[in-house]
Amino acid sequence: MANYIRFDWAMKRLLRNKANYAVLEGLLTTLLEDKVKICKLLESESNQEDEYDKYNRVDMLAEDSRGELILIEVQNNNEYAYFQRMLFGASKLVTEYINRGEGYEKVRKVYSVNIVYFSLGHGKDFVYHGKTEFRGIHEGDLLELSPFQRQTFKVDQVSQLYPEYYILKVNDFNRVAKTPLEEWIYYLNTGEVPEGATAPGLETVKEQLQLDRMSQDELKAYYRHLDNIVILRDNIQTERAEGRAEGRAEGREEGLAEGRAEGREQGIREERLKNATAMKAAGIPIETIAQITGLTVEEIKTL
C-alpha cells in the first residue's frame, strides 16, 4: 500500500491550491452527506496562526457554492478547553461575515469541522455531530419554523440556521474501513488510503498527495513535522501514565525521566524507519533517504 502525505501537512502546503479543492470537497461531501462545492478559501481572524500554532494546529476557512462558511481545523496537541475554542471560532465567524447595518437574516450558516488527534472528552464513537435545537420543557416538542420562515430562509428546521459542529476523533478509529466516511477517517489517521476506497476526494489524494511528488527540501520539512507529532503523542501518553502511577512510584523521578527520553527516541526512530520504508518503496534514492531521515545507508538497505 502506497504512503501519502498526511492531511494536516497537506492543509498547510497543498490544499490551498484550487487544483486540489477536490480533496476538501470530497471530505466535506462525505461528512455533511450533501454535495459541497468550494468556491474560494477565505482568511479570517479566526484562522490565523502564531509561531506556536504552526506545528500544532491548522485552520482553513472555505466558502461553498451556497455562500455557507466551513471552518476546518486540525489539532494535534491536547487542549482541555477545546470545546470552548470550537464555540469561539464559530461565533467569531458569524460576526465577522455580516456587514454593519445588515439585518439578522443575513447571518451566514457556519460549519465547524474539527479533526482532532487526541482524546477529546469521553465517548465511544469516533465521529460526533452537534447542532442547536429547542425543545419545550413541559411538552417536549421541537420548536419549528413558521411556513413564512421556511420560505424566506429556504430551510426546514431551526437547527439549520445555527452553526453545526463535527468532531472527528481520528486516533480512536481502529476498525476496517467499510463506509466512505470510515475510508476518510482511516486516511486521516494513518496517512494511507484503503484499497478499493470509493469515498469522494480519495482518488485525488492518490493522484496529488504522493510522497514522491515532494522535493527533497519539502520531504525534510515534512519528516520534521512527523517527528514533532511523535513527540507530542509521547508527551500525552507519558502524562497519562504518570497520572495513573502517581502515589505508587515514589523515588523514581530519574527513572521516569529516562523512560520518557527513551520512549521518545524509540518513537521517533520507529517513525523514521516507517517513513524510510515508504520512501524506498516510492523509488527515492537511498542516499537521499539517509539525508532526510538521519538513518544510515546500511539501515535503509535492510528495510
Rank of each mutant, 00 (worst) to 15 (best):
R108N: 02
N235W: 08
M60K: 03
E299I: 13
Y165P: 00
K54A: 14
Q266N: 14
T29Q: 01
S215L: 07
L31D: 00
E299Q: 10
F83K: 03
Y4W: 06
N235T: 11
M214R: 02
G251P: 03
A62M: 15
E73Y: 01
T132K: 08
R85N: 00
G103I: 07
E265K: 14
G251K: 07
E203K: 10
R272Q: 05
D227V: 13
R252N: 09
D234M: 15
R57W: 06
T190G: 05
E254A: 13
A81F: 13
M214K: 00
Q151E: 15
Y165I: 04
E45C: 12
K274L: 15
K274D: 04
L188M: 09
A81W: 09
Q48A: 15
R248E: 10
K40Q: 08
L145W: 03
R108E: 02
T293F: 07
L69G: 00
L256W: 07
A241S: 14
E63L: 15
G103R: 09
L211D: 00
N17H: 12
L295Q: 02
P147W: 05
A257E: 15
L142S: 09
A257C: 09
Y166W: 12
F153K: 11
F7H: 03
L61E: 02
E33R: 11
R260G: 05
L303T: 03
R16P: 08
D172W: 03
P200Y: 02
T288C: 12
R213I: 06
K154S: 11
E203G: 05
L27V: 01
G251N: 03
N228V: 13
G259V: 10
D53W: 13
F148K: 13
G103E: 05
A197P: 05
